[in-house]
């Protein structure tokens, strides 16, 4: 049986960051160790105030070949963006 530790993905929120960002991967036998390893590997330069770790096997990712059907339809929905609407200056701040 392989004794290779599972792969984990590491997400870190910086001091002024609003969300966690993917910073890299590492190996660890369990979640607790993964958290500690993430601290030691990925915050050596004061990079973070919060860490998430997720076992890589548990991540479901979209397929690159679905890029068209998944993302292109939203390109035509320009009306979802505030800049689509012309509001006269006289109406005040909005």
């Amino acid at each position: 049986m392989s004794s290779e530790w599972p792969l984990w993905e590491v997400f870190i929120r910086g001091q002024y960051g609003l969300s966690h960002r993917h910073v890299g991967s590492l190996h660890a036998p369990d979640a607790e160790c993964a958290l500690r390893n993430a601290r030691d590997v990925y915050t050596r330069r004061n990079e973070g105030v919060s860490i998430w770790v997720v076992e890589a096997a548990h991540i479901t990712a979209s397929s690159p070949s679905d890029k068209g059907p998944l993302f292109e339809p939203s390109e035509s929905k320009v009306y979802r963006h505030p800049s689509f609407y012309d509001i006269p200056d006289d109406a005040g701040a909005m």
Binding site: S3, E4, W5, P29, D30, C33
Partner: peptide, 16 residues
């Protein structure tokens, strides 16, 4: 280091 890697993993599996 083999025994260390195996030992840590074995503990993780027991805990799980």
């Amino acid at each position: 280091g083999a025994w260390v890697r195996e030992g840590m993993l074995a503990h993780a599996r027991k805990k799980a």
